[in-house]
Amino acid sequence: MTALGFLHPGHSAEDDYQRIEQLLGTDIRLDLEKSSADRLTAGVEALRLSGAEAVVWASTSSSFGYGWEGAHDQVRTLALAAGLPASSTSFAFVHAVRELGVRRVAIGATYPADVAERFAEFLRAAGIEVTGVHAAGVATRAEVGEWGPQEVTSLAEKASATPAEALLLPDTALHTASHITTLEKHLEKPVLTANQVSVWEALRLTTRKVNAPSLGTLFTRKSVVQATSSPSGV
């Protein structure tokens, strides 16, 4: 059994992790603890006692919002507190893009425009070209959590208006686990979503490779991205 720990801001799309656990169909357990950006270490002890082998801060905006260096500091603090490899959803996107071997991506964000642009800046700091950013301007996680397949597909289509090798949907409040393969077939390109890449990142940190086509192109890659030797795993 491989146990993976996630600190989650709560209130929306937690059930995506239950769905992903089912789709993995292996001896992998996903454990969630509610947390916030200013109290990240609070839930670490519970995850460590549950047997977690790695910890991911499963929030995108509350990691890239600190900037490239600040996000590194955040994860480093988390790793030291947990005594485990650690990362965040923002870095998960960077590593997933590199795993796919693509350089040009489009962003479909539920966020206000200024927040979505900060995510684009974070990706650019990692050397990733952002061809376009579509921001839906939704103010709350609760509203995003109520979106269904129609709204998710509309967001993806609007974001794909600019040429890109992959599409990124960065909000962890967005339910996407059941829609990834449908979106990829519709858009004819890899789709990376926040909860999907968070789980993939935790697996990366444990060097565990899982083939799960129902979770999209990212989970069908033959190569494996190894965790680094740094305390943060980033």
Rank of each mutant, 00 (worst) to 15 (best):
A92V: 06
S36H: 04
S61M: 12
A113H: 13
G51T: 13
S50I: 09
A86D: 05
Q22I: 08
R118T: 04
R103D: 12
W200P: 03
V55T: 06
G67A: 03
R39I: 03
A194Y: 01
P9T: 06
A37H: 07
A161I: 12
T26W: 10
A125R: 13
K189C: 06
F219D: 02
A54H: 09
A125K: 08
E143F: 14
A46I: 07
G10H: 10
T26P: 05
W57V: 05
E184T: 12
K158F: 00
A58V: 14
V144I: 14
S62T: 10
E14Q: 14
E117I: 03
L168W: 04
L155M: 02
E117L: 13
T172L: 11
T217I: 08
I20K: 09
W147C: 13
W57C: 13
T153P: 04
E188G: 15
F93N: 02
V138C: 05
S214R: 15
G233E: 08
L100C: 14
P112L: 14
F91Y: 07
L49K: 07
T228K: 13
G145V: 10
L123T: 03
T182L: 08
A46T: 13
T89R: 01
P9G: 07
T162D: 06
L23F: 03
P163M: 13
V94H: 04
V56G: 14
T182V: 08
H95R: 09
S232W: 12
S36T: 05
E188T: 11
L218Q: 03
L203V: 08
K209D: 05
T207Y: 13
V94L: 11
G5T: 02
R104L: 01
F219W: 15
N211G: 11
V191G: 00
A202K: 11
S88I: 10
A106C: 13
L84F: 03
S87T: 15
I20V: 08
L205M: 14
G65W: 00
T131P: 10
E129S: 12
R39N: 05
V102L: 14
A116K: 01
E33G: 09
T110V: 13
L218F: 00
F119E: 01
I107N: 00
L218G: 01
A135N: 09
K158N: 15
R118Q: 15
P190V: 05
S62C: 14
Y17G: 12
F64S: 00
S36P: 03
T131E: 11
L24C: 08
G65H: 07
L84H: 15
A164P: 09
T182Q: 12
A161N: 11
G148C: 03
A212W: 02
T181E: 09
I28E: 03
